[in-house]
């Protein structure tokens, strides 16, 4: 079996990301562990988006909604656990919790439900409508979070003590990195399995030609909706991790800048590529860190760089290193 260039690049990326925090500890720079964790979490969020955007061709400008909902799931459950008050959901009461496994499940469930609600309406349309509608719905969750004062409103919500995983001390940065890294690998595995499945084939076909897919008896709407829901779930999971990393969640996680950044990450890395989102997240965090250290105006240069990539260098980092994909 020959190893393709893309596989080699993927393995290299995986090893670099894994080695980074250990190297940082060796060099006595523990701050870089947090940076690597950030890469893994943003990479995970972008893997979720890549499922909809890369495989399904669904340009969602509203993935911040799922990211933020995951974050708020973590924050709200933790705050209830801390205050010792159950969360009253009308029909039943949910006890607060500081168990990440529970938090993740709730985040994934909430993200999936929100994605189902948004997807059912947005997927009735396509193209430019889809972009604007997903953006509008994400903005709706943003305004809701701001105007609902119970969980901090505009000020956001702090997580007093990071949530826990049985048997792992998540307060130690390297442990938390490994938790996030493991979830990232799991999500990539799911992405690869979906891409190789019959469902994945139908999804990619419906990106290329909806009419043909429909004419052989597959409903593109349903395929797209399922993909959108799974995509929202993965991004919501990353939101929960992100909230626990910063021990803080605020409406800015739901803002449309966040949606834009997630798209940037996917495109910088390579749309539809397995490890593209991770490459993009690594590049984005490095860019943010290096330029942010040099100048306060780093977003100006991010804009210029992005413009250059879109206009002149298509295919992203993985595309640049591994060559064009065999299929369009």
């Amino acid at each position: 079996m020959t190893i393709s260039r893309e596989t080699a690049i993927n393995v290299t990326l995986a090893l670099i990301l894994l080695a980074m925090p250990f190297l940082a500890l060796q060099l006595g720079k523990p701050f870089y562990v947090t940076l690597a964790t950030r890469m893994a979490i943003l990479g995970l969020a972008a893997v979720g988006l890549n499922l909809a955007l890369g495989l399904g061709g669904l340009v969602s400008f509203g993935h911040a909604a799922f990211f933020g909902v995951g974050g708020y799931a973590a924050g709200i459950l933790a705050s209830h656990a801390f205050a010792g008050q159950p969360l009253n959901l009308g029909l039943f009461a949910l006890p607060g919790t500081n168990q990440m496994l529970v938090v993740w499940s709730v985040a994934v469930l909430a993200g999936g439900l929100l994605a189902a609600a948004i997807g059912v309406i947005s997927l009735r349309t396509s193209g430019v409508y889809f972009i604007m509608i997903t953006l509008a719905f994400a903005q709706m969750t943003y305004y809701f979070a701001i105007s609902w004062p119970a969980y901090g409103g505009e000020d956001g919500l702090s997580i007093t003590i990071r949530n826990v995983v049985p048997g792992i001390n998540t307060l130690i940065p390297i442990n938390y990195f490994l938790v996030c890294y493991a979830l990232l690998l799991t999500a990539l595995l799911i992405f690869a399995l979906i891409r190789g499945s019959r469902f994945g084939a139908a999804l990619q076909a419906s990106r290329q030609n909806k009419l043909r897919v429909a004419s052989i008896g597959i409903a593109p709407f349903r395929i797209g909706l399922v993909a959108f829901i799974i995509s929202g779930m993965i991004t919501a999971l990353s939101g929960a991790l992100y909230a626990d990393l910063n021990r803080f969640v605020s409406p800015s996680m739901l803002s449309w800048h966040m949606s834009g950044e997630l798209i940037i990450i996917v495109v910088l890395g390579g749309v539809g590529r397995l490890w593209g989102p991770v490459a993009g997240a690594m590049l984005f965090v490095v860019f943010e860190f290096v330029l942010g250290g040099l100048t306060e105006r780093w977003q100006f240069f991010l804009g210029l760089a992005l413009l250059a990539v879109v206009l002149f260098a298509r295919g992203g980092l993985v595309g640049f290193l591994a060559g064009r994909m065999r299929h369009g």
């Binding site: 955007l53 798209i263 749309v271 992005l306 879109v310």
Partner: peptide, 12 residues
């Protein structure tokens, strides 16, 4: 997608 990205870059 390219239009969204390029004009988002212009916003920045």
């Amino acid at each position: 997608l390219d239009q969204v990205l390029a004009t988002f870059a212009l916003i920045l």
